[in-house]
């Protein structure tokens, strides 16, 4: 970097941005060190390393919040929702990317506007729907709803992606006698795998991190609840043990961070594409 580029304004901006970065990092540092401390140590020395490394906070959190079951439930909901979403989105995007009919245009428009419908607005009616269907407090209904909540963005993104695949490929395949389903499966799906992986990543974050609908639709019964619902149950109105609470928080973050470490650039691209293109 040339010295002349280091104008005062830029240095000032840099200092501000890094200060903000620090503000973001401090709570995360606090989270990790405190998860290994007792209440007294957290309060007396919030920044210091633990005086005694209380690894048992993790086992205590695991048992008290029944995290094993909760992790299985979250995994069930996330994986099932991913599978259903792909089964719906891949054909829909293929159809919308290639069709020129008015109906397709209308459907695409519905999804584009539907992206702007905030899920929260439908919280109470969706709960009533689950009761009506006899699926209240069932993971299955939560799964079905979560699919719907990510459907419009997924369709929009994958349709855009599939439009970049040359139409000539499809034409020559049709001349070879392949039907639409085989074209979709053997030509479009393999060629749009980067797009598919993008929506899988984006949706995993949405499914794994969802809180409010999980709380309302499934509730906090230890057998069915997801990790995000299990976590706040460690708060005690009279005296919270912060060590185990924060240990449980770390546990819920581990799957997401593993994903981030493995997919780093891809995950960033998926998250930005989700908002930039949606």
């Amino acid at each position: 970097m040339k010295f002349s580029q280091l104008s005062g304004g830029r240095l000032g901006a840099g200092a501000l941005v890094w200060a903000y970065g620090l503000l973001l990092a401090i709570p995360i540092y606090f989270l990790v060190v405190s998860s290994l401390k007792g209440n007294l140590d957290i309060f007396n020395d919030p920044f210091g390393l633990p005086k005694e490394w209380l690894f048992e906070n993790y086992s205590e959190a695991w048992e008290r919040a029944v995290l094993g079951k909760a992790l299985v439930n979250s995994a069930f909901v996330s994986i099932a929702a991913e599978i259903i979403t792909l089964a719906l989105v891949i054909p829909a995007s293929y159809g919308l990317a290639r069709s020129r009919s008015r109906l397709s245009l209308l459907i695409e428009r519905i999804f584009a506007l539907g992206f702007l419908i905030p899920a929260f607005a439908t919280l109470v009616p969706v709960l009533l729907l689950s009761i009506q269907l006899g699926l209240f407090q069932r993971r299955e209904f939560l799964t079905m709803f979560m699919v719907a909540s990510t459907l419009s963005l997924s369709v929009i993104l994958l349709t855009q992606f599939m439009r970049t695949i040359p139409a000539e490929l499809e034409e020559s395949a049709m001349i070879d006698g392949l039907n639409r389903f085989r074209i979709m499966w053997h030509i479009y799906l393999p060629l749009s795998l980067p797009g598919v992986s993008m929506i899988v990543i984006l949706n995993f974050l949405a499914y794994w991190n969802e809180f409010l609908f999980s709380l309302v639709l499934v509730g906090s019964n230890a057998d069915n609840r997801t990790v995000q619902v299990a976590l706040p149950t460690l708060i005690d109105q009279t005296k919270t043990e912060f060590g185990p609470l924060l240990a449980a928080t770390v546990i819920t973050l581990i799957p997401v961070y593993i994903l981030y470490i493995v997919l780093n650039r891809r995950l960033e691209n998926a998250l930005t594409a989700g908002a930039v293109k949606g």
Partner: peptide, 24 residues
Amino acid sequence: GPVGSTKGLSLFSLPALGWFVFFT
């Protein structure tokens, strides 16, 4: 889209649309 018929292609998006309408 491709030259030639694209008839029936909008049907591919109906399951997703139905799901979206029902739950949202």
